[in-house]
Simulated assay, not measured.
Amino acid sequence: MSAPYDIKQNPHKGNRGLTRAWHAAKNSWCGIVYAFQEESAFRQELFLFVVLSPIALFLPISPLEKCALIASLIMVLVVELLNSSVEAAIDRISFDHHDLSKRAKDFGSAAVMLALLIAALLWATICIPLVINW
């Protein structure tokens, strides 16, 4: 049986406080840059966010509805980043076709599709009455 895990064994867990927050922010920014450079789906969804967020801000709806519309777009970006991280981890293991690798990638793709569906339903539910009553 192996020795129990101790956090002191992990060389990546040494930073604390503001130093940790600074490094986490830098890593997060790098993730966004990599996603923008390497993932066309992320660029497309970011484009939707950039175009639709200002529209949400100017719609004649409540602040909570504006927040929900923008949050749904952010959720799509979050799920896309998680999907891309699964794909990167699978590709690091092997580029060979394997049924479990395909399944993992398909699960990630399905999660993105469902996030997009949630966003579309929310936008439609809030915006269609505006168009009808216009």
Rank of each mutant, 00 (worst) to 15 (best):
residue 1 M to C: 02
residue 1 M to N: 03
residue 5 Y to K: 00
residue 6 D to I: 00
residue 8 K to I: 00
residue 10 N to R: 01
residue 10 N to F: 02
residue 12 H to K: 11
residue 13 K to G: 03
residue 13 K to R: 05
residue 13 K to P: 00
residue 15 N to W: 04
residue 17 G to Q: 06
residue 18 L to E: 14
residue 18 L to R: 09
residue 19 T to H: 05
residue 19 T to G: 09
residue 20 R to K: 14
residue 21 A to K: 12
residue 21 A to R: 13
residue 22 W to D: 05
residue 22 W to L: 07
residue 23 H to E: 07
residue 26 K to V: 10
residue 26 K to E: 02
residue 26 K to F: 01
residue 30 C to R: 15
residue 31 G to R: 13
residue 31 G to C: 08
residue 31 G to H: 06
residue 32 I to C: 03
residue 33 V to N: 04
residue 34 Y to F: 07
residue 36 F to H: 11
residue 38 E to P: 00
residue 39 E to S: 13
residue 41 A to R: 07
residue 42 F to N: 04
residue 43 R to Q: 07
residue 45 E to K: 04
residue 49 F to W: 14
residue 50 V to D: 05
residue 50 V to H: 07
residue 51 V to M: 14
residue 52 L to S: 11
residue 52 L to G: 07
residue 52 L to D: 09
residue 53 S to D: 09
residue 55 I to S: 02
residue 57 L to F: 07
residue 57 L to Q: 14
residue 59 L to H: 04
residue 59 L to E: 01
residue 62 S to K: 08
residue 63 P to D: 11
residue 64 L to H: 01
residue 66 K to Y: 06
residue 68 A to H: 06
residue 68 A to D: 08
residue 69 L to C: 12
residue 69 L to S: 04
residue 69 L to R: 07
residue 71 A to N: 05
residue 73 L to K: 09
residue 73 L to R: 08
residue 74 I to N: 02
residue 74 I to E: 00
residue 74 I to G: 11
residue 74 I to Y: 05
residue 74 I to K: 06
residue 74 I to S: 04
residue 76 V to G: 05
residue 80 E to W: 01
residue 80 E to Q: 14
residue 81 L to E: 04
residue 82 L to Y: 02
residue 82 L to N: 06
residue 84 S to C: 04
residue 84 S to N: 08
residue 84 S to D: 04
residue 86 V to A: 10
residue 88 A to D: 13
residue 88 A to I: 01
residue 90 I to M: 10
residue 92 R to W: 09
residue 93 I to L: 14
residue 95 F to H: 14
residue 95 F to N: 15
residue 96 D to L: 12
residue 96 D to W: 08
residue 96 D to I: 01
residue 98 H to V: 00
residue 100 L to T: 07
residue 102 K to M: 08
residue 103 R to Y: 14
residue 104 A to N: 09
residue 105 K to F: 04
residue 105 K to G: 05
residue 107 F to H: 10
residue 112 V to P: 10
residue 112 V to R: 11
residue 112 V to E: 08
residue 113 M to T: 10
residue 113 M to K: 12
residue 114 L to I: 15
residue 115 A to W: 13
residue 116 L to D: 12
residue 117 L to N: 05
residue 119 A to K: 01
residue 120 A to F: 10
residue 120 A to L: 07
residue 121 L to G: 05
residue 122 L to R: 01
residue 122 L to A: 05
residue 122 L to V: 03
residue 123 W to Q: 03
residue 124 A to N: 09
residue 124 A to Q: 04
residue 125 T to D: 15
residue 126 I to L: 11
residue 126 I to D: 04
residue 127 C to Y: 03
residue 128 I to A: 08
residue 132 I to K: 01
residue 134 W to C: 02
